[in-house]
Simulated scan of single mutants.
Amino acid sequence: MDNLWYLHGEDFFAGLEEEKRLFLQKAVHRRFQKNDIVFFEGDPGDACFYIASGLVRIFSIHDSGKEPVFFLRRAGELFGISEVLGGYPRKANAQAIAPSEIHAVRGQDFDALLAAHYPLARRVISLLGSRIRHLGDSIRNLVVCSVEGRLIKLLIALVYDLLPDAEAWRRPVTVPLRISQEQLASMAGTTQPTVSDLLQKLQKEGQIRVERRRITLLHPLRLLSGVDGMTEALSTGKALRRG
């Protein structure tokens, strides 16, 4: 079983060139600077979004001031789909955490595209199904995977696009954005002090290097091989290639 299945993603429109052309024809094109808000929780769910470049976090804000991060959406991904299909208000916030180019299509236009293009509708159904599966795996990880294992998987996810082949998995790679320990903690389902302790531990072990909120994985393959349940995936090489 490939334990990194959720990272093996092509561009959402891969193989759907005509559908992508029609989507972009209908879209409003916007550029977001780092920290710009795409939408707030409670906003009307009247559009869906395609990321041409950049990185977007989907998160909530609690009364305590904590901001748990549910997902990171990368270039080539579609987001905001579930609300636009049902016309529901947004259930979370979306924020660019790097300069991003995003294309937004109104709900009625997206519905018309889905009705007229079965391959696009099928791709959306498949995408939503995979995200439900990912949520299930995330809940399972919270129950059975150690906090250290969850943190390592998160670090691998953040650098995955920079690991195109087996050789790259054996070279140092730096997380391509500055990310706080609080953000890492919210995404890994733990606390900031725990993340701090684990980063120090991994650094002492020679697995990572931390400098000014920049984290470098010194040997991604070796780091991942120590995570619970990853040995089989790594031995077959499935974790080293895109699906």
Score class of each variant (00 low, 15 high):
Asn93Lys: 07
Gly42Glu: 12
Leu114Gln: 13
Lys238His: 12
Gly9Leu: 15
Ala27Asn: 00
Glu83Met: 05
Asn93Glu: 00
Arg212Pro: 01
Asn3Tyr: 08
Asp2Ser: 13
Leu158Gly: 03
Pro99Arg: 14
Gly206Met: 06
Glu18Lys: 02
Arg57Ala: 11
Leu217Glu: 00
Val69Ile: 15
Pro220Gly: 04
Phe49Glu: 00
Leu217Met: 04
Asn3Gln: 11
Leu240Ile: 03
Arg123Tyr: 04
Leu127Asn: 08
Cys145His: 11
Asp197Ile: 14
Asp137Pro: 07
Phe71Asp: 12
Met230Lys: 07
Ser64Thr: 14
Leu113Tyr: 00
Val28Asp: 12
Thr236Ala: 13
Asp111Ala: 15
Arg213Ala: 09
Trp169Arg: 10
Val227Ile: 08
Arg241Tyr: 11
Gln207His: 11
Ala116Gln: 15
Glu101Asn: 04
Val69Pro: 00
Ser126Pro: 01
Tyr88Trp: 05
Ser146Pro: 04
Ser186Leu: 06
Pro164Cys: 05
Ile179Ala: 01
Glu211Met: 09
Leu22Lys: 00
Ile61Met: 05
His117Arg: 03
Ala75Val: 02
Gly15Tyr: 03
Ala112Phe: 07
His219Gly: 03
Leu158Pro: 00
Arg30Leu: 10
Ala157Asn: 09
Glu10Gln: 10
Thr174Val: 10
Ser130Gln: 14
Glu101Ile: 06
Gly86Ala: 09
Ala239Thr: 03
Ala92Trp: 10
Ser126Tyr: 10
Arg222Ala: 13
Ala185Phe: 01
Gly226Val: 02
Asp137Glu: 15
Val210Ala: 11
Arg212His: 11
Pro68Ala: 08
Arg222Ser: 14
Leu127Ser: 02
Phe70Asn: 12
Pro164His: 07
Thr191Glu: 13
Ala14Ser: 15
Lys26Arg: 15
Thr190Pro: 01
Tyr88Asp: 13
Gln33Ser: 10
Met230Tyr: 12
Ser60Ala: 12
Gly189Phe: 02
Tyr118Asn: 11
Asp161Gln: 13
Gly76Glu: 05
Leu78Thr: 01
Leu162Ile: 07
Glu41Gly: 09
Phe79Val: 04
Pro119Lys: 07
Leu162Asp: 14
Leu24Gln: 03
Val105Arg: 02
Asp43Tyr: 07
Asp165Lys: 06
Thr174Gln: 12
Phe32Lys: 03
Glu41Tyr: 03
Ser60Val: 15
